[in-house]
Simulated scan of single mutants.
Amino acid sequence: MISAFEHPFLSGLVGDEEMAALLGIEAEMAAMLRFETALVEAQAELGLIPGETAKSIAGTIATFKPDMNALKNGTARDGVVVPDLIRQIRQAVEGPSNYVHFGATSQDVIDTALVLRVLPCLDLLDRRLAVLAGAFADLSRRFGERLLLAHTRMQPAMPIRVADRIECWRAPLQRCIERLQPLRRSIGVIQFGGAVGTLEAFGDKGTALRAALAARLNLIDVPQWQSQRDRIAELANWQSLVTGSLGKFGQDVALMMQTGGAIALAGGGTSSAMTHKQNPVDAEALVTLARFTATQLSGMHHALVHEQERSGVAWTLEWLILPQMLIAVGGSTAVAARLIKRIQTIGHDLGS
Rank of each mutant, 00 (worst) to 15 (best):
M1D: 15
I2G: 14
E6W: 05
H7V: 03
P8L: 14
F9M: 03
S11Y: 04
G12I: 04
L13E: 04
G15M: 03
E18P: 05
A20W: 05
L22N: 02
A27P: 13
A27H: 12
A27L: 14
A30H: 05
A30C: 04
A31Y: 08
M32R: 07
L33R: 02
R34L: 14
F35T: 05
E36D: 06
V40N: 09
Q43S: 07
A44P: 02
L46P: 01
L46C: 01
I49D: 01
P50R: 09
G51V: 15
E52K: 10
T53Q: 15
S56M: 07
I57A: 02
A58S: 11
T63S: 15
N69K: 15
N73W: 12
G74C: 03
R77Y: 11
D78W: 09
L85W: 09
I86T: 12
R87H: 10
Q88L: 10
S97Q: 13
Y99F: 11
V100D: 10
F102Q: 07
F102T: 08
V109F: 08
V109E: 07
A113N: 11
A113W: 15
V115Y: 05
L116P: 00
L116E: 00
L122Y: 08
L124G: 00
A133L: 12
A135M: 07
D138F: 09
R142S: 01
F143C: 08
L148Y: 07
L148G: 03
A157N: 06
P159K: 03
I160F: 15
D164R: 05
I166V: 15
C168K: 13
C168N: 11
P172E: 07
P172A: 09
E178W: 08
I190A: 04
F192K: 01
G197Q: 03
G197S: 03
E200L: 11
A201N: 11
A201V: 14
G206W: 03
G206E: 00
R216H: 04
N218D: 14
I220K: 10
D221L: 10
P223N: 01
Q226E: 03
S240E: 12
F249Q: 02
G250E: 00
Q251A: 13
Q251V: 06
L255Q: 08
M256S: 02
A264F: 06
T270V: 04
S271I: 01
A273T: 13
K277Q: 13
Q278D: 06
A283R: 09
E284Q: 04
A290Q: 02
R291I: 05
A294L: 10
S298P: 05
H301R: 15
H302N: 08
Q308F: 12
S311Y: 06
A314S: 13
W315T: 04
T316P: 08
T316A: 15
L317K: 14
W319Q: 03
I321L: 14
P323R: 12
L326I: 09
A328T: 04
V329C: 14
A336Q: 04
I340Y: 05
Q344N: 00
